[in-house]
């Protein structure tokens, strides 16, 4: 079970990262939980400097952009 968290204050890119991540996770058929974090103080507690960011099992894997589909697949494996 992977714990996925999307950090972002709700801009268009954040929504896209959420969609793309879910798509990749479903394609892989992994079990996951997805949480969107929009509170700026909580976002900053992950020590990122740009949003949107993707956190997998507590580790920041992507920050500031929406990665390509195959990159996401690799990150989620």
């Amino acid at each position: 079970m992977k714990k996925l968290q999307i950090l972002g204050t709700g801009c268009a890119k954040c929504k896209k990262l959420t969609e793309e991540t879910e798509k990749a996770a479903k394609e892989l058929g992994i079990e996951y939980s997805l949480e969107k974090i929009t509170d700026i103080e909580k976002i900053m507690s992950f020590a990122v400097m740009s949003t949107p960011a993707l956190v997998i099992d507590g580790i920041v894997k992507v920050a500031g952009h929406v990665p390509e589909h195959d990159v996401l697949i690799k990150l989620l494996l």
Binding site: G8, T9, G10, K13, I40, M44, M49, S50, T51, G64
Partner: peptide, 14 residues
């Protein structure tokens, strides 16, 4: 530097 206004706050704090 790539910058969008939605990233202004994290960047400021960073």
């Amino acid at each position: 530097t790539p910058f969008c206004s939605c990233s202004a706050v994290p960047l400021f704090i960073g």
